[in-house]
Design a protein around this nucleic acid. Structure first.
Lengths: 359, 359
DNA sequence: TTTAGCACTCCATATCCTTGAGTGCTAAGC
DNA sequence: GCTTAGCACTCAAGGATATGGAGTGCTAAA
């Protein structure tokens, strides 16, 4: 059967209405739309066709139609009108970002909160470090007799540290020597080369401080191993319960448990080869628990070779146009903010942080 | 009216039963209990008394009784039988801790997940840094021309760092000088002394690197300001929905939104002067959203002057005995693990807290 | 002081009915 | 040919009514 222009128009109307009302859409409701010049009977025929073509579904004989997954897919890909953010919306997103981004180290969490608030849906936010990092530099800082701080700088400019306490006394001198040794032997190495053999060699050269080596090596390999893994936050789950489709507690629980589990761990894989915004409709989704929901995700650039992803989870009938618009705008603003450190037009040192407010 | 032993026994039975069934408890159900030697009429009289005394409530005339907040309070404080953890339970908690604790920096999150799983309720986990910290030491590490890493060591042995990129070239020499200056002038100072005047003086002495000072100072004050603030994670919200009292979506939403908001920010204050485990029943609770739920919280020691708190949120009829037992055991195990400096394979003398030992 | 008995209350559940929105189909109109 | 008015039919949602049963309070007897 041919998917005529009129059929598309009807389909779009059905989806639009269903997104607004969450109720099955009848032929009469379509007729009432401003630029629908046909009678309800004609619409009924078109809707019957769309149903046999698989774009619409009927909960029961005497109900209106609701879009099927395929219907949403078509809608998202071709039919939906682009949503233009109002100036108000862009402004409120911008000020939100400015206000909240004082402390960058909570980036992931903050972004999740903001996105959740902006869309009134649960939001996912994650940042993944660049994979396959190597160590660029070790620093050992004395912190008192018997304890020191290990600082490991990675090739992706990430820095991790750890306070290590040992039952032996170390001097500043010991640490200087040891860090020189570490920097000479264990930098620029991929994870695979951190073998027992390497550790042995280093320990043998380390002399007095050799007992520190295992702790350091363990922490380092651990860091390298987990570099590249994602750091994910989900917030705003309770917003789901405000939606009519989740008045059914069982449904709600299924979805929520799909959200706070590590069930989302393959999201990064799904987004691997995508640029920009991706919409996963219902069954296309990452996990079984989410098969009755949709996920809209988009990437952004955090700089330093790191990537961020933000997304929201909602019912399949969510307002894709609005959500994708807001999400993209978020991603764009964040990319602008973090992606390019090389745009210092302020004499003010531009770190990842902003505006010293001390007068 | 006198609260006789028999009344207490009845009250305990009512609470026990209600915890199990989530249904109002009638006089007959009490009679059916193994060591109840009285008839239902007698029990009825006792229950009527307990109702007028405010320990029980009646949803409607012809229903059984449910405990009031005061009833739960009494139950928790005096009546409940101590729950003894089985060997299985202690073992599974221990292995969970061992497995998951590889990476300490995700402590808070991991703990929340484990506790939530162990109790089948939403869990809260937080770690608060010691308040009123001062800076013990600054370190500046070159990370490439135009960028360096600022490491700030606090008096509570916490270490924070930040990668700073600047549009000017800094040499290793510059950084050495600057860090000496910082360590000479800005360590051991409480937050209040970080004034504009101080910054001016430092900048004037800093010479070539003076433009770095504002960024450093800002980051430092920010760190000090947020030191003492808590780092909180809530997980397992969806577990609530499995409970009969939250089949009502509106109730569920209220509670959930009370959980993922910052509504919990005054929990630390509530726990301030408590040691061990605290039970907040219903209206005693931290926020209005949680007034129909109970919170069980307990502290543990992370070492380095930092404190952790774990807790769960559940319906007022939750199994207090079981929950508090598991929570305490968790807290104890974690204290053992972190409370003392990290001494590889040295058995340590630990914790003087009371020990629910395995049977 | 305890208990058996009884009348009473009120919720929960099931059943039945009505209502109305929506459909598919047919036949007439353009 | 396409479109539309009309009609019979279906089915879920909501309201009203009846019924069963769990539980109570009270009284009087043991």
């Amino acid at each position: 059967m041919e998917l005529t222009e009129r059929k598309k128009k009807v389909l779009r109307s059905v989806v639009d209405l269903y997104i607004r009302t969450a109720e099955p859409v009848g032929s009469k409701a379509i007729t009432a739309l401003p630029d629908m010049k046909y009678s309800s009977a004609t619409i009924r025929n078109e809707m019957a066709d769309l149903t046999t073509m698989g774009y619409l579904e009927q909960p029961h004989t005497s109900a209106g139609r609701i879009p099927s997954a395929a219907g949403y897919r078509l809608y998202v890909d071709e039919l939906m009108a682009e949503y233009r953010l109002s100036i108000d919306e862009t402004r409120s997103i911008n000020t939100a970002i400015e206000e909240k981004m004082q402390k960058v180290d909570k980036l992931v969490e903050k972004v999740a909160r903001m996105v959740s608030q902006a869309t009134d849906l649960p939001a996912i936010s994650m940042a993944s470090r660049a994979a396959n990092a190597t160590v660029k530099r070790f620093e050992l800082i004395l912190a008192g007799s018997g304890s020191f701080i290990l600082v490991v700088m990675l090739s992706n400019d990430e820095v991790v540290n750890k306070l290590i306490k040992l039952p032996l006394t170390v001097t500043d001198e010991d640490l200087k020597l040891l860090s020189a040794l570490l920097n000479a032997t264990m930098t620029e190495l991929p994870l695979e080369e951190f073998t027992a053999g390497l550790m042995d060699r280093v320990m043998r050269s380390a002399g007095k401080a050799s007992s520190l080596v295992p702790v350091i090596v363990e922490f380092t390999t651990d860091t390298l191993r987990h570099s590249g893994s994602a750091n994910m936050v989900v917030t705003g789950q309770s917003r789901l319960l405000g939606l009519p489709e989740y008045r059914d507690v069982d449904k709600a629980q299924k979805v929520l448990s799909g959200l706070d589990e590590d069930a989302l761990s393959n999201l990064p894989a799904v987004m691997q080869n995508t640029n920009g915004t991706k919409v996963l409709v219902g069954p296309e989704n990452v996990s079984a628990e989410l098969k009755d929901t949709s996920v809209v995700m988009t990437k952004f650039d955090i700089g330093d070779g790191m990537q961020g992803m933000i997304g929201v989870v909602g019912p399949t009938r969510m307002d894709y146009a609005k959500v994708t618009a807001r999400l993209s705008y978020f991603a764009e603003s964040l990319s602008k903010m973090f992606g390019k450190p090389e745009t210092p037009q302020l004499p003010e040192p531009v770190a990842e942080e902003e505006t010293p407010k001390e007068a």
